[in-house]
Simulated scan of single mutants.
Amino acid sequence: MAEIIAVNISATSATFFLPPSPVLEDSGFPLASLDSEDYVFVEARHPNKVLEGLNSLRLNNAFCDVTLCCGGQEFPCHRIVLASFSSYFQAMFSTDLMESRQERVAINGVESQMIGMLVSYAYTAEVVISKANVQALLAAANLLDVMAVREACCRFMERQMDEMNCVGIHCFAEAHSCRELEKRSMDYILQHFGSVCQQEEFLSLCADKLTEIIASDHLNVAKEETVFEATMLWLDKSATRRQSFEKVSVETTVNAVVPHLSVC
């Protein structure tokens, strides 16, 4: 049997001189607190690798400690991941709410497919926004307080805006408190009123919203008669709208008459 020999290497037996290592300025460490020979290693891929690892665990249902239930579908997750990307879940899991102790949590009022997409986003930082899903996705992101996805949906809708859908986008933005999209869509309506007023969405406006539009000082029309004609089209769309005639016609009359009044 071979003899095992313990070798003790003295610290003074060999001396190695290493050049000072660079300190990464974007490492998050204050430079004043680091020795000139310190080396701060930052792995740029680490955040993505951690997400990939967490997503792999989720897909394999490993260490999952909560299951989101929506529309008959179930989504096993990790509480810490949900809480890290959504203040809605952070509040849910860090308070005395009943859900903080439950292994199964029901999510109501949104489409199950959108919950699945947001869960996937939490673990991948990616989500596909399309014309077909943008409104449902925004509504879900709004409910769960996922602001990055909410704002991405708003930007997508703004890029898709035209005279045919700007009224619908405005009403949707108003309903979900998307103030910037609400303002931009209203600006579009006012700027392109001549073509917008000929679209089906315009004819579906409620009386209050129609009044708000035609009473705006920023309404852009080549001639005031356009406002009157648009209002008449709106009134003719439904017999029940005749009861709104007085309120709407006042604004229409003001817009049509005031520009032609001369100062005495």
Rank of each mutant, 00 (worst) to 15 (best):
A2G: 12
E3T: 15
A6Y: 14
V7H: 13
S10A: 14
T12L: 14
F16M: 12
F16R: 15
P19T: 14
S21T: 15
P22W: 01
E25M: 12
E25K: 13
S27C: 13
F29N: 02
F29W: 04
E37M: 10
E37L: 09
D38T: 06
F41S: 07
V42E: 00
R45C: 08
K49Q: 07
V50H: 02
L51I: 07
G53C: 04
L54M: 08
S56W: 05
L57I: 05
L57T: 03
R58F: 01
N60F: 05
N60R: 07
A62Q: 06
F63L: 11
C64M: 06
C64H: 06
D65F: 04
T67H: 04
L68I: 10
C70V: 10
G71R: 12
G72F: 01
G72M: 05
Q73P: 04
Q73R: 13
P76R: 01
C77P: 07
C77L: 08
H78D: 06
A83Q: 06
S84I: 08
Y88L: 12
F89K: 13
F89D: 09
F89N: 10
F93Q: 08
F93R: 10
D96P: 04
L97K: 13
M98V: 14
E99C: 00
A106W: 04
N108P: 01
N108V: 11
G109N: 05
G109M: 03
V110S: 04
I115F: 09
I115C: 09
M117W: 04
V119G: 07
V119W: 02
S120P: 00
A122L: 08
A122M: 15
Y123V: 15
A125I: 14
A125E: 11
V127M: 12
I129Q: 02
K131L: 11
L137A: 06
A139E: 02
A141S: 13
D145L: 15
V149W: 03
R150G: 05
C153N: 09
F156E: 07
M157A: 10
Q160M: 15
D162T: 11
N165S: 05
G168P: 00
F172G: 08
E174M: 08
C178P: 05
C178Q: 02
L181R: 01
K183A: 14
K183C: 11
R184E: 08
S185D: 10
M186Y: 01
M186L: 15
D187G: 10
D187P: 03
Q191L: 14
G194R: 07
Q198R: 13
Q198A: 05
E200C: 06
F202Y: 11
L205E: 06
T211R: 06
I213N: 00
I214H: 01
I214A: 00
A215S: 12
A222H: 11
A222I: 08
E224Q: 10
E224G: 08
E225V: 12
V227W: 00
E229A: 07
T231H: 03
M232V: 04
W234L: 02
S238G: 05
S238K: 09
A239H: 02
R241F: 03
Q243V: 14
E246Y: 01
E246N: 06
E251S: 12
E251C: 10
T252A: 12
T253K: 07
V254L: 09
V254W: 02
N255Y: 09
V257Y: 05
P259Q: 07
L261G: 04
S262P: 00
